[in-house]
C-alpha cells in the first residue's frame, strides 16, 4: 500500500487544549471545591490515601509501565521514604519539612539505584524476583535496627506536624491539601519526563532493547535512571502515606501486599499511563469500601469481616486477570474510549 503525501491534519492542538482544560477543571475541583464541601471522612479515609497511592502508582508506572522493568518491591521504597523523612526531620530539626521530604525522596532514589543494579544483567522474571530482595531486606533492616525508628521497640514512628514555612497542615483538609500540592507537582514533572527524550528512552528500552542500543540509547544508564526516578517518587508517596494518611506507621505496614497493591493499581489503571495510576488508585481505594458496604447492606450482619476480606481478595485477583485478558491498557484506555464515544467523532 502507498501513503500519499497529504499533510497530516493537525488535531493535536485542540486535543491538547481540551486536555489542558480538563486538568485545570480537575485541579480547580480538587484544590477549591472539595475542601469547601468535603467531610473529614472523605479526606481522611478516601482522598488522602488515594493521593499517596496514586503517586506511588505514578512512580511504579515510570519504572514498570514505561521502562518495562517489573518491580515487586515498591513498598520497600515507600518505607525508605517514610523512615528517611522521619529521621531527617528528627535529627536535623532545622531543616524545613519540605527539604526533609526531598532528601527522603533522594534517599529512596539511592536505595532504588542499588536494588536496580541487577537490572543491568537480569531481565523479566529474574529481575522481578530480585526486586523482592529489596522488599525483604528493607523491611528487615527497619525492624531490626532501632536507630531508624528512634529506638521504638516495635519500630513504630509517629508523624511530625506537616509544615511549610510557618503554616501547619494539621486538620484533615490540611493534610489532604498538603498531599495534593506535592502530588500535583511531582505528577506534573513525571508527565513532563514521559513526554521528553528521556521518557522515549524508557519506552525504547522496554519495547526493543537491542534496537535501542544500536540507536545509541544508553540502555544501562536509562534503566538505572528509571529505578532512581521511580524510587524517588515512590519514596515521597511513602512519606505522604505515613505522615499525611496513617500518622503512625510501622515497617510491617510496607509489606509485600502493599507492593502488590501498587502493582495492581497500575495494571487496573493502565500501564504506561499517568492518568492510569490515578484511576487505578481510585479504584483500589474506593472499591473495597463499596464492597464491604454492599456486603453489609445485602447480607446484614451475618457475614463476618473475614468473609468480606476473602471476597475482596478474590474479586481483586479476578479483576487483575480480567483486565490482563480483556483490557491490558486498563481503565485509562476504557476512559479514553468512552470519551471518544461521547465526543462522537469517529476515528
Amino acid at each position: 500500500m502507498s501513503i500519499s503525501v497529504t499533510p497530516s491534519i493537525e488535531r493535536s492542538l485542540p486535543r491538547a487544549a481540551i486536555g489542558g482544560l480538563t486538568v485545570a477543571a480537575i485541579l480547580f475541583i480538587a484544590f477549591v471545591v472539595l475542601p469547601s464541601v468535603g467531610s473529614d471522612y472523605l479526606f481522611e479515609a478516601i482522598l488522602t490515601p488515594f493521593l499517596a497511592l496514586a503517586l506511588a502508582g505514578v512512580g511504579l508506572n515510570l519504572l514498570t509501565g514505561y521502562a518495562g522493568q517489573v518491580s515487586l518491591g515498591s513498598a520497600a521504597f515507600m518505607a525508605v521514604g517514610a523512615f528517611a523523612a522521619y529521621n531527617f526531620n528528627l535529627r536535623v530539626p532545622e531543616l524545613p519539612f519540605l527539604v526533609s521530604i526531598v532528601l527522603a525522596g533522594l534517599t529512596a532514589a539511592g536505595i532504588g539505584l542499588i536494588f536496580g543494579l541487577p537490572s543491568l544483567r537480569l531481565r523479566g522474571f529474574y529481575l522481578a524476583v530480585s526486586t523482592l530482595a529489596a522488599q525483604f531486606f528493607v523491611q528487615w533492616a527497619l525492624t531490626k535496627f532501632g536507630w531508624f525508628s528512634n529506638d521504638n521497640p516495635s519500630g513504630i514512628i509517629n508523624a511530625p506536624p506537616l509544615k511549610i514555612a510557618s503554616v501547619t497542615f494539621d486538620t484533615a483538609v490540611g493534610r489532604y491539601l498538603f498531599s495534593l500540592g506535592i502530588v500535583t507537582v511531582l505528577t506534573f514533572l513525571a508527565w513532563r519526563l514521559t513526554r521528553a527524550q528521556t521518557g522515549r528512552n524508557f519506552i525504547a528500552v522496554r519495547d526493543n532493547q537491542t534496537a535501542a542500543r544500536v540507536i545509541g540509547v544508553p540502555v544501562l544508564r536509562t534503566k538505572l535512571l528509571a529505578f532512581a526516578v521511580s524510587s524517588f517518587i515512590i519514596g515521597v508517596a511513602g512519606v505522604l502515606w505515613a505522615f499525611a494518611y496513617l500518622r503512625t506507621v510501622e515497617p510491617a505496614g510496607f509489606n509485600l501486599d502493599r507492593s502488590f497493591q501498587i502493582l495492581f493499581i497500575i495494571i487496573i489503571g493502565g500501564l504506561a499511563s499517568i492518568r492510569g495510576a490515578f484511576l487505578g488508585a481510585g479504584f483500589i481505594v474506593v472499591f473495597p469500601l463499596l464492597l464491604s458496604r454492599l456486603g453489609g447492606e445485602l447480607l446484614g450482619g451475618i457475614v463476618d469481616s473475614g468473609v468480606v476480606e476473602m471476597s475482596q481478595r478474590i474479586v481483586i485477583g479476578a479483576l487483575i486477570i480480567l483486565f490482563l485478558i480483556a483490557e491490558p491498557k486498563g481503565l485509562a484506555e476504557l476512559g479514553r474510549r468512552a470519551a471518544r464515544r461521547l465526543g462522537g467523532r469517529p476515528t
Binding site: 527524550q197 522515549r200 528512552n201 519506552i203 525504547a204 522496554r206 519495547d207 526493543n208 537491542t210 534496537a211 535501542a212 540507536i215 545509541g216 540509547v217 504506561a272
Partner: peptide, 17 residues
C-alpha cells in the same frame, strides 16, 4: 524492531538519540 509504544514520528526522532 520498532518501538511499538511510540508514534511513527517519535520512533523517527529516536533515530537522533
Amino acid at each position: 524492531a520498532l518501538f511499538g509504544g511510540l508514534t511513527v514520528l517519535e520512533n523517527v526522532v529516536m533515530g537522533l538519540t
